[in-house]
Each structure stands twice: as structure tokens, then as C-alpha cells.
């Protein structure tokens, strides 16, 4: 055991042939601080072969059981995690560059965040506190499933509070509460290639990235303006990372693009179906592409949230009945609830 105990990170060497399921992973420590000693906490045992279903009821908050282990910590085997971490390290070293990785089959369909789940599984440590949001909400099916998945397979604590989380897996939104150093935001990405819209040939888009030929990205924006009079792209709005690679920020609304810039948290992107990983290290310049005479602008919401009453936040339209009733509410449920609590 001595060969692994003093190793600060599995990425620095040290295999785990005999310890699978017995001891935790220290987690990937790029841009965030993991709590000391989290390696030494015992792994939870998993009573059920199915991580998503079956007794006993989910243990949120890192519950312990004495039943024999069935799954490795955080579902993926250690070899796979290391493979993913290597891809992540490269992604962090080359911000915005899409690193291919051997995406695994996950116990959920593509489109449900298999890329994000694999990244989360690879970086999760025992002391991590996980938050999962889908469209900004913690209580949607997808968010709940993934949260339960990790609660069961890794036994980590989960939360809906942005400030309390160390790892936040997201599809579509960046939380409103400012992210801090030590936090990691994991994005689920459906289509990682920003140039694909105009250039379907992968061989060609790779060349374009390699040579930083990004004129085509502006053709997309040009088309927007010529059609709509303004840049109508509202999500997956292309950004230039660290002055080099152009990146697709996944289906994130452009409202959130400014939050990616100079962000203290580490941002990791996983595309499971497309087998690509990319990253934005903390405090990296992320610039939304635009034209001099059509500068980048975020959407504005003039109405207040129907629940918390705050203005200037990203709103979702919610249909309330089948008679055309609808309301606009904050997309970030945690931020909305926090505001409502504060008001009380």
C-alpha cells in the first residue's frame, strides 16, 4: 500500500491493482483543492448490482453499509478513470482543444450525459460534494438520476447548493452563484465540434483547428446576421479559448458565456457519444466570437421571475396548464430558492 498512499494523485503514477473498491480515489486536482486525507476514507459498499434501481434506498451524503462491494468506486474501473484523467490532463494543458478518449458504454442512453458522467466519475474523490443540474434545475429527471447514480456508486455527498458543491455536473447552464477556486464544473456535451455546422468533414475540421483557421466560425455568425439582422445564435455560442482554440460551450445559453471567462473554477467538458474531452482551466480567457459592428451581447430578460420576483436572471418558460397558461421562472432553481429564502 505504501506505493499509493504517498502519491498525491493517481495521475502521477501508482497503480491500484489490488485496491479496487477498497479505497477511494484522491480525485483529479487541477484548479481545485481536495480535502486532505480523503484517500483514506473507506469506500462505500454497494448492496445492489443496479446503481440506478433497487434496494436499499439511495444514500445521499455518503452512507455506509457492510454488504459486499459490487461496483468500483464511482462505477468506472480504475483503468478507465486513468485513461480519462490522462485525456483531462491534456485537455487542461491545451485549453479548448478536443482530446479524443475511449468513451465507455454507461448505464444510460447517449444524450443523457454519458460524457459528463464519465468525466465526473474520473475526478470524483470521497470528500467531494456533488451537485447535478439539468437546464439549471436540480430536480429534473436527468439531474436526479445522475445524482443518485453517484450517491450509490461512489457514496459521495450530494447537494443542490452551488456554494457547497465541489463538483457540479451540468447540462445547459452555469450556476448563477459565482463559482470559486476549488470547484469543478463538468459539462455534458452533445456535439463538441463547433465547425461542424458548416464543415461536416472531421478531417477538415481537425486541420482547421490545427491551423487556427476559424474564418468559417464567423461565416456562421455572418449567416445569422444576414438572416435575422443580429447574431441570433442563443446557445452553443462559439468561444475562443486562451486566444487559440475555438470551442463549442455545449448547449449552454450564450447568457452564460461571460461566466466562462476568467472563471476561478475548473471547467471540464465531456462528449460521450463523440468521444471527446476538452477543458478550460481556471482563470482562462474565454472570448465570445463576434463582429466589430455586431458585438457579442447576452440575452436580456425584462420580466421578473414568477417565483422569486428577481429581474435580470435567465428564465425558463413553464407551461402551467393545457389552456395556454404559462409563467417565466428562474432557470437556476438553487439561486431562485436562495432568493426566496432570503426574502422570508
Amino acid at each position: 500500500m505504501s506505493d499509493t498512499h504517498d502519491s498525491p494523485s493517481p495521475l502521477c503514477g501508482g497503480g491500484y491493482p489490488a485496491q479496487q473498491g477498497e479505497r477511494g480515489e484522491p480525485g483529479l486536482r487541477i484548479g481545485r483543492r481536495a480535502a486532505d486525507g480523503d484517500e483514506l476514507r473507506p469506500a462505500p459498499s454497494l448492496p445492489s448490482p443496479d446503481p440506478l434501481r433497487g434496494p436499499p434506498s439511495p444514500v445521499e451524503g455518503g452512507g455506509k453499509s457492510s454488504a459486499p462491494a459490487t461496483y468500483n468506486f464511482a462505477y468506472l474501473d480504475e483503468g478507465t478513470k486513468r485513461m480519462i484523467r490522462r485525456a483531462l490532463l491534456k485537455a487542461v494543458a491545451v485549453p479548448g482543444y478536443q482530446v479524443p478518449f475511449a468513451s465507455r458504454e454507461m448505464p444510460m442512453p447517449y444524450g443523457w450525459g454519458t460524457g459528463g458522467v464519465q468525466v465526473t466519475a474520473a475526478i470524483l474523490g470521497r470528500s467531494d460534494v456533488l451537485k447535478v443540474i439539468d437546464q439549471g434545475a436540480d430536480d429534473t429527471t436527468n439531474a436526479v438520476s445522475i445524482r443518485r447514480f453517484f450517491a450509490r456508486t461512489a457514496g459521495v455527498a450530494t447537494t443542490t447548493r452551488t456554494a457547497e458543491a465541489t463538483v457540479i455536473q451540468t447540462r445547459h447552464r452555469i450556476p448563477e452563484a459565482p463559482l470559486t477556486e476549488g470547484q469543478t464544473l463538468v459539462y455534458q456535451v452533445p456535439i463538441p465540434e463547433p465547425l461542424r455546422f458548416l464543415e461536416p468533414r472531421e478531417t477538415e475540421t481537425r486541420q482547421m483547428h490545427a491551423l487556427a483557421e476559424y474564418g468559417l466560425m464567423h461565416v456562421k455568425l455572418y449567416e445569422d446576421i444576414s438572416r435575422h439582422g443580429h447574431i441570433a445564435t442563443t446557445y452553443a455560442y462559439p468561444v475562443e479559448v486562451a486566444g487559440r482554440y475555438v470551442m463549442d460551450p455545449s448547449p449552454t445559453p450564450k447568457f452564460d458565456n461571460p461566466k466562462m471567462d476568467d472563471c476561478p473554477a475548473l471547467q471540464l467538458f465531456g462528449a460521450g457519444r463523440e468521444r471527446r474531452i476538452y477543458a478550460v482551466p481556471p482563470y482562462t480567457t474565454v472570448r465570445s466570437l463576434d463582429f466589430e459592428d455586431h458585438p457579442f451581447r447576452v440575452q436580456t430578460f425584462s420580466e421578473p421571475c414568477a417565483l422569486c420576483g428577481a429581474k435580470g436572471h435567465y428564465l425558463d418558460e413553464v407551461v402551467t396548464d393545457d389552456a395556454g397558461g404559462r409563467m417565466f421562472v428562474c432557470s437556476d432553481t438553487d439561486a431562485c430558492e436562495t432568493r426566496r429564502e432570503d426574502a422570508r
Binding site: 483557421e213 474564418g215 468559417l216 464567423h218 463582429f291 466589430e292 459592428d293
Partner: peptide
Amino acid sequence: RLMGLGERHY
């Protein structure tokens, strides 16, 4: 081609 050469004025 113009955008490829860095023209950024619509």
C-alpha cells in the same frame, strides 16, 4: 475568404 483573413466587420 475575407473572414478567413481576419475581416471582422460585418
